[in-house]
Nucleic acid binder design. Structure first.
Length: 642
RNA sequence: GCUCUCAUAGCUCAGGCGGUAGAGCACUCCCUUGGUAAGGGAGAGGUCCCCGGUUCAAUUCCGGGUGUGAGCACCA
């Protein structure tokens, strides 16, 4: 007798062994049809898996996250089969699941065109209709290598050769297609109902740029057609929110060939930029930071001393003048140490928190640039905290608190924290790394929030915490960081007089909350779809006249609102009110103030909110109060305002 | 940097298998002074990304560059 425990705790008994599919069958025909895979004692298996001891079994369907992943993985196989039917010379390599779908890399003599993609998709549909059974089998290494050699699948042979040990390998076969795979897979191709191929691009074999370029075909697959449709709608929504598109439409910034990767900020974009910067200045001032400013062009020898030249020479812009080599600064820290080094510092001066909105340039690889998100010229909300070893933990903790509060003000409630530890190429003794990694761990634990460990991803001079936020599309955006640096201060000769009169080297914490303003603005634009909250909106209100008669009143109203510090413009063009409302609504202005004879007589403005809501007529003072309140609450949502 | 794609009016985009191009919106002027998402008319606007080659002739074909986009690689 075999006892199976289902997830709801109920138990079932079977004679001898039984497959997962068999268990599903015994529960009901609906489940038997829906079962894509099973989970036996925690391990994901095929429905053909035979259970021969007492076990906990769960049936996986398209409604489980795991089920969708199995579906996507099987869809990758489905695509590979379709490709080999259409292009017999194409060699298969690897085809994993991604966040929203899957891809498969092919080695092929030419590239796939969009028409090819359509043909592949069609062939996939045909294979789904054939409803081929997906069979698992096991083979030993040498047989497997012989088989793939015979098939001319060189990459598969390489993959098998790279798998250590002598263990048997599992294979999945559907019709004329067989692939090396850990599985599990759906029981038959007919289970895959909702998929779409999305794009094709080159990708390196094994992700190494020294290797061959393969053809990577991306696709997405879902448990149901409805889910697929939702996903495609999400893609469309993301496209609408693209900050490059909105930047043009809302006249915020532009790029041009003469300055690749370096934005030209227009008045409206710069107004947002300034609003963000002024906010950060206030916040940092209130939290013990001293703002400074340092040169953009610094003699190359400083970068040699700091250690940056040896590691990042290719990514630095340099200038020769007067027989001297200068680098355009790629970061502010060496300059901040120069400020620290002026005058003798005592332990009483620590922690010293220096902040700078310094313009930096980095020669980013051409292919990596992406609108405002990855640029060659940028400004960070950069800061360096010089402190003693004992102060590290509280400084990091204070920083984390500040970061959470800033993110909330911008409307981001969810923060993802990751600790990156020592990389292979690094400076500094292992004991220093031990201590500093521990200090960051302690600070992270003190936040009470969940965090992840990312081994080997730290900077060459120290470990770091990376802070990402989730935007309204659920995308994760890395912004803030705090990095421990126990080397650069020493290299650049920083020291302070300790309590006992000895000279000690301060620790430096590199930190930024927003990251670069450019990137952060890109994130904000997409998060708000260009409809900036009042405190950030480049134009907070536009005053619209009905006829020429109200022109003077409108100008006076604008003047008095500007005097109160609001960003207000007028639209006195000889156009109908409906036309003006439409235009400024499309420009996503938070408040439209309509002025006709009635408003002039009563000293009012008729207020219309961006969403179309009519707040009716109110006095200028009342509108000032309304706008002030709106501005004062930043972007905090109900639950995040304290 | 690598693979592929693309580059035409201020914007969004058509077009031409070689004979210097078109729409909508925006812009300018005129009419209209109209109360909450497009009033009407007229006009102006282009080195078809840059440099070479082929050709009687290149915006179109070919080569090279630059930039954009999707990925990959990179990201102090």
């Amino acid at each position: 007798m075999l006892q199976i425990t289902l997830p709801d705790g109920s138990k079932r008994e079977y004679e001898g062994s039984i497959t997962v599919a068999g268990i599903a069958e015994s529960i009901g025909p609906g489940l038997a049809k829906a079962a894509l895979a099973g989970r036996v004692n925690g391990a994901l298996v095929d429905t053909s898996f035979e259970v021969n001891e007492d076990s906990e079994v769960a049936l996986i369907t398209e409604r489980d996250t795991d089920g969708v992943e199995v579906l996507r993985h099987s869809c990758a196989h489905l695509m590979a089969q379709a490709v080999q039917r259409l292009f017999p010379k194409a060699q298969v390599t690897v085809g994993p699941v991604t966040e929203d779908g899957f891809f498969y890399d092919f080695a092929y003599e030419s590239t796939f065109t969009p028409e090819d993609l359509q043909a592949i998709e069609k062939a996939m549909g045909a294979i789904v209709k054939e409803n081929l059974v997906v069979e698992r089998s096991v083979m030993n290494r040498s047989d497997a290598i012989a088989m793939f050699n015979e098939m001319g699948e060189d990459y598969k042979v390489k993959i098998i050769e790279s798998i250590p040990g002598d263990e048997d390998l599992s294979f999945y076969k559907q019709g004329d297609f067989i692939d090396l795979c850990r599985g599990p897979h759906v029981p038959s191709t007919g289970k895959i109902k909702a998929f779409k191929l999305t794009s094709v691009a080159g990708a390196y074999w094994k992700g190494d740029s020294d290797n061959d370029v393969l053809q990577r075909v991306y696709g997405t697959a879902w448990g149901s057609k409805a889910d697929l449709k939702l996903y495609l709608q999400r893609l469309e929504e993301a496209e609408k929110r693209d900050h490059r598109k909105l930047g043009k439409h809302l006249d915020l910034f532009h790029f041009q060939e003469e300055a690749p990767g370096m934005p030209f900020w227009h008045p409206k974009g710069w107004a947002i930029y300034k609003a963000v910067q002024e906010y950060m200045q206030k916040v940092q001032d209130a939290n013990g930071y001293k703002e400074i400013n340092t040169p953009q062009l610094v003699d190359y020898t400083l970068w040699e001393k700091s250690g940056h030249a040896s590691k990042f020479a290719d990514e630095m812009f340099s200038v020769e003048s007067d027989n001297r080599m200068y680098a355009i600064k790629p970061m502010n820290c060496p300059c901040h140490i120069q400020v620290f080094n002026q005058g003798l510092k005592s332990y009483r001066d620590l922690p010293l928190r220096l902040a700078e909105f310094g313009s930096c340039h980095r020669y980013e690889p051409s292919g990596s640039m992406h609108g405002l998100m990855r640029v060659r010229s940028f400004v960070q909300d950069d800061g360096h905290i010089f402190c003693t070893d004992e102060q590290i933990q509280s400084e990091v903790a204070d920083f984390m608190d500040l970061l959470f509060s800033v993110y909330k003000d911008f409307g981001f409630d969810e923060v993802i924290l990751r600790l990156s530890t020592r990389p292979e190429k690094r400076v500094g003794a292992d004991e220093l790394w031990d201590a500093s990694e521990q200090a960051l761990k302690d600070a992270l634990n003190a936040t009470g929030k969940h965090w992840e460990l990312v081994p080997g991803e730290g900077a060459f001079y120290g470990p770091k915490i990376e802070c990402s936020l989730k935007d309204c599309m659920g995308r994760i955006q890395q912004c803030g960081t705090i990095q421990l640096d126990f080397s650069t201060t020493e290299r650049l000769g920083a020291s302070y007089v300790a309590e006992d009169g000895s000279r000690k080297v301060p620790v430096m914490l590199h930190r930024a909350i927003l990251g670069s303003f450019e990137r952060f603005l890109g994130i904000l634009i997409e998060h708000y779809a260009g409809a900036m909250p009042a405190w950030l909106a480049p134009e907070q209100a536009v005053i619209l006249n009905i006829t020429d008669k109200q022109g003077d009143y409108c100008r006076k109203t604008q003047e008095s609102l500007k005097n109160k510090g609001f960003r207000v413009s007028t639209d006195l063009r000889n156009e109908k009110i409906g036309f003006k409302i439409r235009e400024h609504t499309l420009q996503k202005i938070p408040y439209l103030l309509v002025v006709g004879d009635k408003e002039v007589e009563s000293g009012c403005v008729a207020v219309r909110k961006r969403g179309g809501e009519d707040l009716g007529a109110m006095t200028i003072d009342d509108f000032c109060t309304l706008l002030s309140q709106d501005v004062a609450q930043f972007s905090r949502t109900e639950e995040s305002s304290e």
